[in-house]
């Protein structure tokens, strides 16, 4: 009794500062959302690797003119189908153009097509999805049935039809590939609208006289943001593959533009003697698609709302 009293009255025992900090940390975990996001995103090494790879590809694509050792379009008919050597690291193609330079410039085309395709698909799909979800009733059924119909046609076939109408070229490839992808956004956004619409806070907003536009921007879109971002990253890979497929078939981006798919097709004729001509551009496609898919995987984990506000 006496002892405890003494202890109580005496000075508060000195807690070592480092221990104290640990204690405080555990009691009030200040979760920095941005830090947590990056920690989860890069928790898998492969995602970090993919991110570095992607940044490298983007830098190479942006500074293609400086990075590429030769001009990708200058033909040199005296120097065709060269084997790889010191000057032409991957050799030259059938028109004497440096393969490495063409692959480097091809990164530009692939990234541009991928980026714009995804933007177009996301913008169109989200808008239609919002309209369908809000309108409900007959309008919604009609939109969703048409969406079902479009998703029943294989993607590549839709793109083929659209490229046929618009004629080959970068812009038409963007629209064509986007036409195969936008139904995904319609479905997702429509589903989100349907579920968010049920919430009490949306009812309350409506009761207070808020317009549907306000609800769309304040409640629905923030709710859709993370699945949209994940979907966009995943579709970047998909759209780059689709563009390569179209270009390989000779109806996407046409020569002389350095598109990886078309390069594979051109090189295929010399597969026996110069396998690199068709294999190297294909490998570039795979690297880029791989990095987008991995980052998409990581983003899905990092943006998972169930993990929000937690550590680890």
């Amino acid at each position: 009794m006496d002892n405890s009293q003494v202890f109580y009255d005496s000075q508060i025992p000195v807690i070592p500062t480092d221990e104290f900090e640990v204690l405080e940390d555990e009691l009030l975990p200040p979760v920095n959302e941005i830090k947590r996001f990056f920690r989860v995103l890069f928790s898998r090494k492969i995602v970090l690797f993919a991110a570095i790879l992607l940044v490298a590809i983007i830098i190479i694509a942006v500074f293609a003119n400086a990075v590429a050792p030769f001009d990708p379009y200058t033909q040199n008919l005296k120097n065709v189908l060269q084997e790889p050597d010191g000057t032409h690291l991957l050799g030259t193609d059938a028109l004497g153009r440096d393969l490495l330079s063409r692959i480097i410039h091809g990164a530009r085309v692939a990234l541009l097509v991928g980026f714009f395709t995804v933007m177009v698909a996301a913008a169109v799909g989200t808008t239609i999805g919002l309209v369908a979800g809000f309108a409900g009733g007959a309008i919604q059924s009609v939109i969703m049935r048409i969406t079902d119909a479009i998703t029943s046609i294989p993607n590549l076939i839709i793109s083929l039809l659209i490229v046929g109408i618009l004629r080959a070229g970068v812009t038409s490839v963007v629209i064509a590939v986007a036409a195969g992808m936008f139904p995904g956004y319609i479905r997702m956004v429509n589903g989100q609208v349907m579920s968010v619409k049920q919430n009490d806070y949306v009812m309350a907003e409506r009761a207070m006289g808020a317009s549907w536009g306000r609800i769309a921007f304040k409640h629905i879109l923030p709710n859709c943001m993370s699945p949209i971002i994940v979907m966009m990253t995943m579709m970047l890979g998909g759209s780059i593959m689709a563009e390569a497929g179209l270009s390989y078939l000779g109806i996407g981006i046409t020569p002389p533009t350095a598109a990886w798919g078309a390069m594979c097709y051109d090189g295929y004729k010399y597969l026996m003697t110069r396998p690199l001509l068709s294999i190297a551009p294909g490998f570039a496609i795979m690297l880029l698609v791989f990095s987008f898919n991995m980052i998409g995987d990581g983003l899905r984990d990092a943006l998972d709302p169930r993990l929000r506000g937690t550590l680890n």
Binding site: Y248, G282, M286, N293
Partner: peptide, 18 residues
Amino acid sequence: ANIGITAPQFWIAILLIF
């Protein structure tokens, strides 16, 4: 599985033909 998902079909075909 990653190769199967990320590699374009025509490229796999070219590799296998080669």
